[in-house]
């Protein structure tokens, strides 16, 4: 069965290699450019000027952590908490995790599962691929950060610690696994990839909004505990504050629970 699983993983990687390669390259370049940008600001002594230009309402809206990001470390680590990067990587995780729905939609399963292939194999394939993509993309961000620092960091400046960079990468990977796990559960019951992706995307977006509301409105706090973004706070990490160890653990647990649901649903459904 390992041979069949390996064959399916290889098949999926081959089909998506251009997208995955381009994503990893973009992230490496982006993080390297962030280091170049930070070095440029540092050398020009611009951080204080930029902080002085931030209007009061922005300081109040984002809190003191916002100014803490306007430092060499904060700019170097920009990709780990930039909304566009997070949204893209969550979208990528959802796309990877909904491959079983695509195989049902195109009836490719009629060829695969007409062979002695247990139904858990396509789901396990997608779960392994999801974990691999999360590690590869977040690893690319870490690698890009180090590459940028090695190339562009001014002499004598302290780099963000490897532990911090790896923690940010790990937290981002945990978020991808969590959202991908939920998408895998939805995709295992769906007949169309578009529907599965849209439902998973909307759900994640709704949970993101719940977390946004809860950060400024106390009554929503209880509901926010259901949101993965409640446990995903890279800014805290970036400004040097620890986050509880169970935050990434809960994200990984939610992703694993999604995988378990997917295995059960896919094993029982009509294809």
């Amino acid at each position: 069965m390992t041979r069949a699983l390996a064959a399916l993983i290889g098949h999926s990687v081959r089909r998506n290699r251009a997208l995955l390669g381009a994503t990893a390259a973009l992230l490496v370049v982006f993080q390297s450019l962030a280091a170049l940008m930070a070095a440029s600001f540092e050398q020009a002594g611009s951080f204080d000027e930029i902080a002085a230009m931030v209007p009061d309402f922005l300081r109040q809206a984002f809190g003191p952590s916002f100014l803490a990001l306007l430092t060499f470390d904060g700019i170097v680590l920009l990709g780990f908490f930039h909304f566009a990067v997070i949204a893209f990587l969550v979208g990528l995780a959802i796309a990877v995790a909904t491959e079983p729905a695509s195989e049902v939609e195109h009836r490719f399963n009629d060829l695969l599962l007409a062979r002695p292939l247990p139904r858990w194999v396509p789901i396990a394939r997608s779960a392994i691929l999801l974990a691999g993509v999360a590690l590869a993309t977040c690893g690319a961000m870490c690698a890009g950060t180090w590459a940028g620092l090695a190339l562009f960091a001014p002499e004598g400046i302290d780099w963000p610690s490897p532990r911090l960079i790896l923690s940010l990468g790990g937290l981002m990977a945990a978020l991808m696994v969590c959202c991908g796990g939920v998408a895998l559960a939805i995709g295992s019951a769906a007949r169309r990839r578009g529907v599965a992706g849209a439902v998973a995307g909307l759900l994640v977006f709704a949970l993101f909004l719940v977390d946004v509301v809860a950060r400024v409105w106390e009554p929503a706090m209880l509901l926010a505990r259901l949101s993965p973004f409640h446990y995903f706070d890279p800014i805290l990490l970036a400004i040097g504050q620890p986050i509880p160890w169970w935050n990434p653990a809960l994200l990984l647990f939610a992703g694993t629970a999604g995988l378990a649901v997917a295995l059960v649903v896919y094993a029982r459904r009509d294809l």
Binding site: R3, A7, L8, H11, F108, L117
Partner: peptide, 21 residues
């Protein structure tokens, strides 16, 4: 025939051979 359009015929036959055990 439910084929994935981006595969070659050879790739498909090999994949199904490996999956078929």
């Amino acid at each position: 025939p439910p084929f994935l359009a981006d595969m070659t015929g050879e790739q498909l036959l090999r994949l199904l051979e490996r999956v078929g055990g």
